[in-house]
Design a protein around this nucleic acid. Structure first.
Lengths: 378, 378
DNA sequence: AATTAGCACTCTAAGCTCGAGAGTGCTAAT
DNA sequence: ATTAGCACTCTCGAGCTTAGAGTGCTAATT
């Protein structure tokens, strides 16, 4: 059975209040703080029903109610009104993003830092997945005998480089020659399709002793593959300690341990799919307890995972709000926020949406070369 | 008055015990756990004197003693015996360090990570100060019209690069030409001595419209200056939450806040001097309370700052152990550990000393080009 | 003179009780 | 359908008590 208007209002008020205060919300407090034209007894009845339907929980019998995962879910999906940022806030984000280096990972880092600053939670960002990019150039620059810088340029306009050891007997021109051959043979190929074999094929006509060539080829291969290394940027992980739900040091530690454990977050964010999440209606409330997405936000461009939905041991008191950013037309990576379940969803969503938008714009600017020729300043 | 042998032993036992348990140490516990051939009453008298002289403190009248800053200082300076790492531990460090990328900052990061892992505390590292290095090469590689990669090679064998915007009308050969001119004009100069003016002088003979040239020169200049950017690597800042002294969330948060506050740590580590620290003997105990450095460790190559000595608000419950690493013969940067004052100094010092040594070796290997031609593996 | 046994004293930490207060669910009246 | 009223429940903090660890001092011992 869908919630009637009044229940929705009450649920919304409870969630709002709990988000603001972190204290269980009682019927009286609700009547006082919000303007329902009914008595606390009525509210009590409604709250009891909301609890029965699984939207609210009681920490103990004589306490107020707090939202359950399902309650937050309903709140996020259809009750919350997301306000736009103020012009000033938008401007600040624009300025900071524009001042970040003309470089992809720098931008993403900046976006992540901004997100953490603006929301007060921990921000996370995944470096772009470039395996569908095409190799455009590969250059080798001799630094000194035995060492070379391998520069890989991808179709997306992304530049990666790597210092490599090369045989000392090679001179700069030989190196350039090898790089040219590899570039000619491979350019236009998708990163995914490049293997040691294809590299070798590209270089087969070089007239050099095989063992020398092999080493250089290998380094080229590594440099190319490394261009697609997945990285995770995290900012503000300590900010969570301010929130009452992490006052218990054990919780806080568990939380920080998980965030710092290699690969967990990266893996999780990589797996995350945009698809709408199925809420398991539990046996009692039946599967009809679901709430439809508000028609005013037909295709939200962010994903919210609340509490248990995260499915990561130890983060059940948290919520995840993420979104993707694009390079060209293809989803390249993900950026988001993790914080207490009792998160200021409205603020987070408006910030994340806007930052995503600006990030996409900046990336487009970067990768298409369309450009403002700004005046440099110190 | 210097401490007699028994007092030293007692002080050492107290510090050892307190480091191990985080509990104030009483006279009885001391007699039980260590084998003094005297009664607890004697120990009590001795401890009272040690307190009078400022080496120990009492949290409250009927508790055991804990070391004061001065007590720790004495412990570190002359009581502590630093054991070498086991062969296995040394080997592990060697292996990890050797497997790190052939790149300076990567090595320092690896060293920092290792340090945190091996000690269980937060590790800190400062990127090398390169302002005394000489410019060796500067190359510009056209990525696409309007964008170029500026590669800066320093005398130390350090390579830094940076994506730059250049006027779209420039072609690759013009760019190479400009870079060559700048390189010719500047190579051999100290980073410190390079200014916009010297760059301009180097490029004065290029026949290009001034506004185009200016932009490229500016980018070259920025790339060169940026090669010496100071960076701080921090690893394992969350590990501190495990220790009882940070069970109080406010303390923990304060601690993490400071570590994450931009510039504080960088500034502090930059300022740190190797000079032996003056202990202010307070009025009561007189200035003769100082303890001479043990002759067996005539010039310890590390700096220990304990509690108040750190002189950073909010870190008074911490200790800092740092050391420097070199490039060539000149001190380049600093690497260290921050943890609770009740720190396992022995373990930290042996690890830091060894890691410093290996780091120096690896840097030498890197910067002199002296090399093992290892077999590459996936 | 140094050491030690003995003891009174101090202080904390943990456990306990208890009452205030907030909140609930239920019933009966509106 | 709503609400006033009320008995009931539960938590939280204050205040109290006690066990135990540790001390400092004194007087006896070596």
């Amino acid at each position: 059975m869908p919630l009637d208007e009044r229940k929705k209002n009450i649920l919304k008020a409870v969630v709002d209040d709990y988000i603001a205060t972190a204290e269980p919300v009682g019927s009286k407090a609700l009547v006082n703080r919000y303007h329902f034209n009914v008595s606390s007894a009525t509210i009590r009845n409604e709250m009891a029903e909301l609890e029965e339907q699984g939207y609210l929980e009681q920490p103990h019998t004589s306490a107020g109610r707090i939202p359950s995962d399902k309650g937050y879910r309903a709140y996020v999906d259809s009750l919350l009104q997301v306000e736009d940022l103020t012009a000033a806030e938008e401007e600040k984000i624009r300025v900071v993003m524009r001042d970040s280096l003309d470089e992809l990972t720098g931008m993403i880092r900046t976006a992540s830092t901004l997100l953490s600053e603006k929301t007060g939670y921990t921000s996370l960002a995944l470096s772009p997945k470039l395996n569908h990019s095409h190799l455009q150039q590969i250059k080798m620059l001799m630094i000194e005998p035995g060492r070379a810088l391998v520069v890989v340029v991808l179709s997306a306009g992304v530049v990666k480089d790597r210092l490599a050891r090369v045989p000392e007997v090679l001179d700069a021109s030989q190196l350039v020659q090898i790089a040219a051959a590899i570039e000619e043979g491979l350019s236009g190929m998708k990163l995914d399709d490049i293997t040691l074999v294809t590299v070798a094929t590209a270089a087969r006509n070089i007239r050099l002793p095989e063992n020398l060539l092999n080493q250089v080829m290998y380094e080229a291969y590594v440099a190319i593959k490394q261009a697609d290394n997945l990285e995770v940027y995290m900012e503000g992980s300590h900010k969570l300690l301010s929130y009452p739900e992490f006052q218990d040091v054990h919780k806080a530690r568990e939380y920080l341990d998980i965030l710092n454990r290699d690969g967990i977050i990266a893996g999780y964010m990589t797996e995350l799919k945009e698809q709408p999440l199925m809420i398991d209606g539990d046996a009692e409330s039946g599967s009809d307890g679901q709430i439809k997405r508000s028609p005013t936000r037909p295709q939200a461009s962010y994903v919210v995972r609340i509490g248990q939905e995260i499915m990561l041991e130890g983060l059940t008191d948290c919520s995840f709000v993420t979104t993707t950013y694009k390079m060209g037309d293809v989803v390249a990576g993900r950026i988001g926020v993790i914080g207490p379940r009792r998160m200021a969803y409205g603020k987070v969503i408006s910030n994340i949406s806007f930052i995503k938008q600006i990030l996409n714009e900046e990336i487009r600017r970067l990768t298409t070369g369309e450009d403002r020729m700004e005046v440099h300043q110190k």
